[in-house]
Simulated scan of single mutants.
Amino acid sequence: MRIVLASSSPSRRMILANAGVDPVIQPADVDEDALLASLQDASPADAVAALARAKAHAVAGQFHGDVVIGGDSMLLLDGRLQGKPHTEEATVERWREQAGKVAQLLTGHCIVHRGEEFVETTSTTVHFAAASEADIRAYAASGEPWQCAGAFTLEALGGWFIDRIEGDPSSVIGLSLPTVRRALYRFGLDASAFWRS
């Protein structure tokens, strides 16, 4: 039995690797924009969970008996959900908007095993630093935050500009280990069963 990560996220892979797990990487092919457009009336937490669910189920049929993890993160800032900025210019604009503010990083999880699913969204409060314009531009130019929810990383260059968080650090990086553990226990499995020997 293996853990399958329905994501190409290097951060999610790193969390599992640092926790002793070598996951199978099988990125899900999901039209996130279309799914979000169909969820306009959903709460932010439910929208993020729906993305995670779509990813997990897009992959689960290929891995009978394994544990499949789908995840998605978005930043809730001033009542609006924000995903990945994708470009240097968009990253600069995002950081001008969020610098010095407090926001919620929502990470949806869907863990599937033998037809059962465990769905949970974690919320972590992020206190953004009042970063200087030069630092915002340098960070955006680095390319690091382009593929990151909320246009930041906690574990790399972006750590310079996060004053503090309240909640689960692994969830902010992209995958909550406590959430995955709760799912495994619900399925009657132990986390240690997946550690590399």
Score class of each variant (00 low, 15 high):
His64Cys: 12
His64Gln: 14
His64Pro: 12
Gly65His: 02
Asp66Trp: 02
Asp66Ile: 05
Val68Asn: 02
Val68Ser: 02
Val68Ala: 03
Val68Ile: 10
Val68Met: 06
Gly70Trp: 01
Gly70Met: 06
Gly71Arg: 01
Asp72Trp: 00
Ser73Arg: 02
Met74Gln: 13
Met74Thr: 02
Met74Asn: 01
Leu75Gln: 01
Leu75Cys: 04
Leu77Gly: 01
Leu77Ile: 10
Asp78Leu: 00
Asp78Ala: 12
Gly79Trp: 00
Gly79Thr: 04
Arg80Val: 10
Arg80Thr: 10
Leu81Ile: 03
Leu81Phe: 05
Leu81His: 02
Leu81Glu: 02
Leu81Tyr: 03
Gln82Asp: 08
Gly83Gln: 03
Lys84Val: 03
Lys84Ala: 05
Lys84Met: 04
Pro85Val: 12
Pro85Cys: 14
Pro85Asn: 15
Pro85Gln: 15
Pro85Trp: 13
His86Ile: 08
His86Val: 09
Thr87Asp: 15
Thr87Cys: 10
Thr87Ser: 15
Thr87Pro: 04
Glu88Ile: 07
Glu89Cys: 13
Ala90Asp: 15
Thr91Met: 10
Thr91Phe: 09
Thr91Pro: 02
Thr91Asp: 12
Glu93Ile: 08
Glu93Arg: 12
Glu93Trp: 07
Glu93Gly: 11
Arg94Asn: 13
Arg94Glu: 13
Trp95Cys: 14
Trp95Met: 14
Trp95Val: 12
Glu97Lys: 12
Glu97Gly: 10
Gln98Leu: 06
Ala99Cys: 11
Ala99Ile: 05
Lys101Glu: 15
Lys101Thr: 14
Lys101Trp: 07
Val102Glu: 14
Val102Gly: 08
Leu105Tyr: 02
Leu105Phe: 06
Leu105Trp: 01
Leu106Tyr: 03
Leu106Pro: 00
Leu106Ala: 11
Leu106Gly: 02
Thr107Cys: 07
Thr107Asp: 11
Gly108Asp: 07
Gly108Ile: 03
His109Gly: 02
His109Val: 04
His109Tyr: 09
Ile111Asp: 01
Val112Ala: 02
Val112Arg: 04
His113Thr: 06
His113Tyr: 15
Arg114Val: 08
Arg114Glu: 15
Arg114Cys: 13
Gly115Arg: 05
Glu117Val: 07
Glu117Ser: 15
Phe118Leu: 01
Phe118His: 10
Phe118Lys: 03
Phe118Ser: 03
Val119Ala: 00
Glu120Trp: 06
Glu120His: 13
Thr122Asn: 08
Thr122Gly: 11
Ser123Asn: 07
Ser123Phe: 01
Thr124Lys: 01
Thr125Gly: 12
Thr125Tyr: 13
Thr125Ser: 15
Val126Leu: 14
His127Pro: 03
Phe128Val: 09
Phe128Cys: 12
Ala129Ser: 13
Ala129Pro: 00
Ala129His: 10
Ala129Arg: 12
Ala130Arg: 11
Ala130Cys: 09
Ala131Val: 01
Ser132Arg: 10
Glu133Asn: 07
Ala134Met: 09
Ala134Val: 09
Ala134Thr: 08
Ala134Gln: 10
Asp135Asn: 09
Asp135His: 10
Ile136Asp: 08
Ile136Val: 11
Ala138His: 09
Tyr139Phe: 14
Tyr139Cys: 04
Tyr139Thr: 03
Ala140Tyr: 00
Ala140Gln: 00
Ala140Leu: 06
Ala141His: 09
Ser142Ala: 08
Glu144Ala: 01
Glu144Asn: 04
